[in-house]
Simulated assay, not measured.
Amino acid sequence: MRYPSAIPNLVAVLVATGTPTATLAADWYTGAPTDVGADEYIVAIDAAATVTSNSSAFGVVTATIAPVTPLNESGPRLRLQGLSGVYSYPGSTSGRTVRGQQEEGTAMFGYEWIWKQAALAGYVGFNVRSNELSVLDPNNPVAGTGVGAKFAADLYLNPTLETLVAANASYSTLFHAYYVRVKAGFAVADGVFVGPEATLLGDAYFNQWRVGAHLTGFTVGPMKFSLGAGYAHDRVQKGGYYTSVEGRAAF
């Protein structure tokens, strides 16, 4: 998304990542390049990957489309998203390792409000999720394929030109999956921010929290990137670590 020039360069990307039967809703919020110029983009493509030491690896691609006005102006939005990943965890009854494979598709429609140093978006739609387990786990109710209603919200703020606050939240009626991520940052270069981040995610079987740090907004070629790393703790595998990389291109 491109916002007015008062908002510094950044990519404050939010992603839900692979953890055993987690929400894996993989929504994120992305900030904007500074100089709009003649580039009034209408499509933004975000890609992200996260690996945890808790035996999981997930990737996601999201397209945000502005069908009426450019992304740097308030208007309706269409969001399409695809997620895929693998994970494993110790079975709750057999003691055998359960290996899972998850795919999810999401389609949502919403509206984004753009101000001089802030942006707020809300979405509503549906998601389809397939979660296959290698071993039957009777205590895990989130296996199989289903469809649910999904809701999401994104918030981006520049309290000052040297600081940022970004937040994302989503909820699906399918397995009561939820995801919340908040990050703050301080500018270390033009449009590049460093700071803490925290994430809470879960569903009817699983929950996890993460605390870490991010480097957001650096550019490689035509894309902007964000890196994150930190500590993760979940109900099944307990303590571990996560790393993530996220990127955005707009046209």
Rank of each mutant, 00 (worst) to 15 (best):
A6C: 09
P8A: 15
P8L: 12
N9F: 05
N9W: 09
V11K: 03
V11A: 04
V11W: 00
A12Y: 09
A12W: 04
V13P: 00
T17L: 10
T19Y: 11
T19S: 04
T21N: 11
A25M: 05
A25I: 07
D27P: 03
D27F: 15
D27T: 14
P33N: 02
P33M: 09
G37R: 06
D39E: 11
D39H: 10
V43T: 13
D46E: 12
D46T: 08
D46P: 08
A48K: 00
A49L: 15
A49V: 08
A49H: 00
A49G: 05
S53I: 06
N54T: 15
S56Y: 05
G59N: 05
V61K: 00
T62I: 10
I65T: 06
A66G: 14
P67F: 04
P70C: 08
P70G: 05
N72K: 04
N72E: 13
R77F: 12
R77G: 03
L78A: 13
R79E: 02
S88I: 07
Y89R: 01
Y89I: 15
Y89E: 02
Y89N: 00
S92V: 06
S92F: 00
G95P: 05
R96V: 10
T97H: 00
V98C: 08
V98F: 15
V98D: 04
R99P: 06
Q101H: 09
E103R: 02
E104S: 01
E104F: 10
G105K: 05
T106E: 04
A107K: 08
A107T: 04
M108Q: 09
M108L: 13
W113A: 11
W113V: 15
W115D: 11
K116Y: 10
A118R: 04
A119E: 00
A119I: 07
G122I: 11
G125S: 13
F126V: 14
L133N: 07
S134P: 06
V135F: 01
L136P: 02
N139D: 15
N139S: 03
N140Q: 13
V142W: 04
G146N: 03
V147D: 01
V147H: 01
A152Q: 00
Y156Q: 13
L157S: 01
P159V: 05
L161P: 09
E162G: 04
T163S: 03
V165Y: 01
V165T: 08
A166E: 00
N168I: 08
A169H: 07
S170T: 15
S172Y: 04
L174T: 09
H176W: 00
R181D: 06
V182A: 09
A184L: 06
G185E: 13
A187M: 15
A187T: 05
D190T: 14
V194K: 04
P196R: 13
A198Q: 13
G202Y: 05
N207C: 12
W209R: 10
W209I: 05
W209L: 06
G212A: 15
G212S: 13
L215Q: 02
L215Y: 01
F218G: 03
T219H: 07
T219W: 07
K224T: 15
K224N: 08
F225Q: 07
F225Y: 06
F225I: 12
G230Q: 01
G230P: 01
Y231G: 08
R235Y: 06
G239I: 05
G239N: 11
G240K: 02
T243N: 07
G247K: 02
A250N: 07
